[in-house]
């Protein structure tokens, strides 16, 4: 089934995107291998959070440099992504530690019932790592959109001032924000209907404080926050980097 879908995806990408489509397919599967390797290394006992940060850095390299090529646009995106990653890490770590959302709830008893729960590995770290990997895709996407468009603005309007360039970055970011939020909302919420059916007779206060509800809503809000934070940071860094390049060119 998965092979069949992969083949269909490959041919569609080939027809629609040509060589770029093939590159997309290769990087797509590299990313899947990256996530699976992450789980294997965790199983060998490495620290889940440090591993997740490494995965995020590698994921950015794959998406930026392999897919979009090495240039000033992708370089300034890369710097911005690293900065946002630090900020998101701080928020994720604090909330993850405090809110007790590690592991599974009694809802999953059918699925995980056969397993031993004493696994000698802190599940808090696993969920923090999962959140970091979850948000990296949207950070990369928003960042590269903003920096590409800013480069376009600079090329069409070479006399633009650095501050105006920054402002146009913020403007573009604001435009794509609503669709990004939409995309994330449906991607994350799509598997959530079952939860409400399971708890159809429970009170609202029970549902709001439930572990699975908290896990999903925190995932959703963290990815929203990450995709907003990346906008001003990319606008600032790109305006600095791209403007400096223009100044050197002018001289």
């Amino acid at each position: 089934m998965i092979t069949l879908l992969s083949i269909i995806l490959f041919f569609l990408l080939l027809i629609v995107g040509k060589s770029r489509g093939v590159k997309t397919f290769v990087t797509f599967y590299l990313s899947i291998i990256l996530i699976i390797t992450y789980i294997i290394l965790m199983n060998l006992g490495f620290n889940a959070i440090i591993l997740a940060l490494i995965v995020c850095i590698l994921a950015s390299c794959i998406s930026l440099f392999m897919l979009n090529g090495y240039n000033l646009k992708t370089l300034s995106s890369f710097i911005s992504i690293m900065l946002v990653l630090v900020l998101v890490f701080i928020i994720t770590y604090t909330i993850g530690k405090l809110s007790n959302i590690q592991g599974f709830s009694s809802d999953s008893v059918e699925t995980i019932g056969g397993f031993s729960y004493l696994i000698n590995y802190d599940m808090t770290k696993v969920i923090i790592g999962m959140y970091l990997i979850c948000v990296i895709g949207t950070i990369i996407d928003t960042s590269i959109s903003v920096s590409t468009s800013m480069n376009e603005v600079l090329e069409n309007n070479p006399k633009i001032k650095e501050k105006e360039l920054y402002k146009s970055g913020m403007n573009i970011g604001g435009d794509i924000l609503s669709t990004t939020i939409n995309t994330l909302f449906f991607a994350i919420i799509s598997s959530f209907i079952g939860f409400f059916m399971w708890h159809k007779n429970d009170t609202l206060s029970y549902i709001i404080n439930h572990k699975v509800f908290a896990q999903t809503i925190i995932e959703l809000l963290l990815s929203f926050i990450a995709s907003i934070l990346i906008i001003p940071i990319t606008s600032y860094i790109s305006s600095k980097v791209l403007y400096k390049k223009k100044l050197i060119k002018d001289e």
């Binding site: 996530i35 998406s63 979850c134 948000v135 895709g137 949207t138 990369i140 996407d141 991607a187």
Partner: peptide
Amino acid sequence: IGTMNHVMLYTCYSSIIPLVF
């Protein structure tokens, strides 16, 4: 096309991590 596919991958596929682990 490329980064959109990556968004879907990282956002949805990351949820398998706890259970597979």
